[in-house]
């Protein structure tokens, strides 16, 4: 059963109030994307224009120079692009599966070890062993070294998402539904997949989106676990490395002298970095409407219970 919106019949807001809502939301929504448009414009701005009038929404002259440089990076750029996609896709699927599987029993009030596993996950949000001990375990015990696994496994689980997902279960799945299914002789896995998951689709879409973003934006794991096999480096790390090189050379220019001057010259210019930012942001802005549609599709189903 699907209910159609709008539902203005339920004593809706006056038109005046709605206009105020529109204005507030529109201003904020515009503020959210204008900086990105600005960076896109800068990436197409010629160096001369920047020197003359600074960054501007209406540059004096345009140039594709920054993109020429980006494309000149050739193989390295596309490979890291591919890596980012691969890591994001595998990571998102795996982490959503783990998250749903872990949080569903925690929502089941009749699960005997519910409390234990609740705390088991929650405690790690607050206490940790610190960076170095974690890396040592990952490298020596789990063999996370110079492989894709090293860029995925450390991010597979998030206690925060467990709590969010559990809340989704709590707010949208009535216990009676599960009890009824159990009485009908449905196994636990089939109850979860056939009955519960369709109801919490919005929750899953939300968690999937959050995880996809986390994987897409991750660069620190590459710094920690990639030493020799740079072929599997993601795009975000490529950009971060340029940033870190620039920082370091700025700090140590005096000691490195001419070496630094030479190295700095090989660094990309500000417009080139802006162009890379465009490259990083573009795929997510394309992927998001898909998620968004999914969220909305899930919502209409989720709005009806029983």
């Amino acid at each position: 059963m699907v209910m159609k919106k709008p539902k203005a019949n339920l004593n809706g807001f006056s038109t005046g109030t709605e206009i105020v809502f529109h204005v507030i939301l529109a201003v904020f929504a515009l503020a959210c994307i204008i900086p990105f448009l600005f960076v896109v414009i800068i990436s197409f701005t010629s160096e001369e224009s920047i020197r003359a009038i600074g960054y501007s929404f209406v540059p004096q002259s345009w140039s594709l120079q920054a993109y020429d440089y980006v494309f000149a990076m050739g193989g390295a750029l596309w490979r890291s692009y591919f890596n980012s996609f691969l890591i994001t896709v595998i990571g998102t699927v795996a982490s959503v599966a783990i998250c749903v599987l872990y949080s569903y029993p925690l929502f089941r009030k009749d699960f005997k070890y519910r409390n234990f596993f609740n705390y088991f996950s929650f405690i790690t949000m607050i206490f940790g062993g610190g960076l170095i001990p974690t890396v040592v375990i990952c490298k020596t015990v789990l063999g996370l070294n110079d492989n894709y696994a090293a860029l995925i496994i450390p991010m597979l689980f998030s206690p925060f998402n467990i709590i969010v997902m559990r809340t989704f279960f709590q707010t949208s799945v009535p216990m009676e539904l599960i009890e009824a299914a159990t009485i009908d002789g449905s196994g636990e896995y089939s109850t979860l997949t056939r009955i519960v998951l369709p109801i919490v689709k919005p929750g899953i879409a939300t968690i999937a989106l959050l995880n996809a973003l986390a994987f897409w934006n991750e660069w620190f794991l590459s710094l920690l676990y990639l030493n020799k096999n740079m072929d599997i480096m993601p795009l975000q790390y490529l950009l971060m490395r340029m940033q870190r090189n620039a920082d370091f050379l700025a700090k140590n220019a005096s000691i490195l002298g001419a070496d630094a001057a030479k190295a700095v010259r090989e660094l990309p210019s500000q417009t080139l970095k802006m162009a890379l930012v465009v490259f990083i942001v573009l795929p997510i802005s394309c992927a998001y409407p898909f998620f968004q549609r999914y969220v909305v599709a899930g919502l209409t189903i989720g709005s009806v219970k029983g």
Binding site: T124, G129, P133, I137, C138, F157
Partner: peptide, 11 residues
Amino acid sequence: LLLLRYLPMFG
């Protein structure tokens, strides 16, 4: 959790 969070807690 056991491998990536609890084991390193000796740290």
